[in-house]
């Protein structure tokens, strides 16, 4: 059931990412909704959920990207898993923790992309960091924190119910 839900989520997120998101781009950089979704689910649902959703999202994103077929699967799956691990070791997830966590994971994910582009020298690496990595990290963190604030009540209720059941 959860798998189907994640599949449906991916079927909404990825087309949204490729078609509508350029309206909210900053300096030509768009927030990565796939990464945000995988991290949020990882933070709140655990590393397995984050990993599964990340893999599904990455697979779909790779189909609609000019890059190699592995790169989104690895980065999104890894991001979901990392977020799950981080979420497991936190007693309280606050919006500021979520923002910082998302920014760090976004930077790590972008670093893999940057490495895969085979930059010619330090100048190109710095250009990539300045023009894409940092901007995307900021956008991912902002959008992720916004979504977390929007649905915080519902998620915390779910957590309480889950913890109560356990």
């Amino acid at each position: 059931m959860k798998f189907l839900l994640y599949l449906l989520l991916a079927l909404v997120v990825v087309p949204l990412q490729t078609t509508m998101l350029h309206y909210v781009s900053v300096f030509g950089v768009r927030p990565d909704l796939g990464l945000i979704a995988a991290c949020l689910v990882g933070f709140l649902g655990g590393e397995l959920d984050g990993l599964i959703l990340g893999l599904i999202l990455g697979c779909f994103q790779d189909m609609l990207s000019a890059g190699d077929l592995w790169i989104n699967v690895v980065t999104k799956g890894g991001s979901g898993f990392l977020a799950g691990l981080a979420g497991r070791h936190m007693a309280h997830i606050t919006p500021s923790v979520m923002t910082a966590g998302l920014a760090i994971i976004s930077c790590l994910s972008s670093a893999v992309f940057l490495y895969s582009m085979n930059p010619a020298g330090l100048d190109e690496v710095w250009l990539g960091v300045r023009s894409t990595v940092l901007v995307q990290a900021g956008l991912d963190a902002a959008v992720g924190a916004g979504l977390y604030l929007l649905f915080r009540q519902r998620w915390s209720d779910d957590r309480m119910v889950t913890e109560g059941a356990l």
Binding site: V14, P15, Q17, T18, T19, H22, G28, V29, R30, D32, G34, F60, Q61, D62, L64, S65, A66, G67, N72, S110, F113, L114, M117, T132, Q136
Partner: peptide, 14 residues
């Protein structure tokens, strides 16, 4: 053209 590349790292379109 129905979309843009799914990541910020490639200049592509769908």
């Amino acid at each position: 053209v129905i979309g843009r590349d799914a990541t910020n790292w490639y200049r592509g379109m769908i």
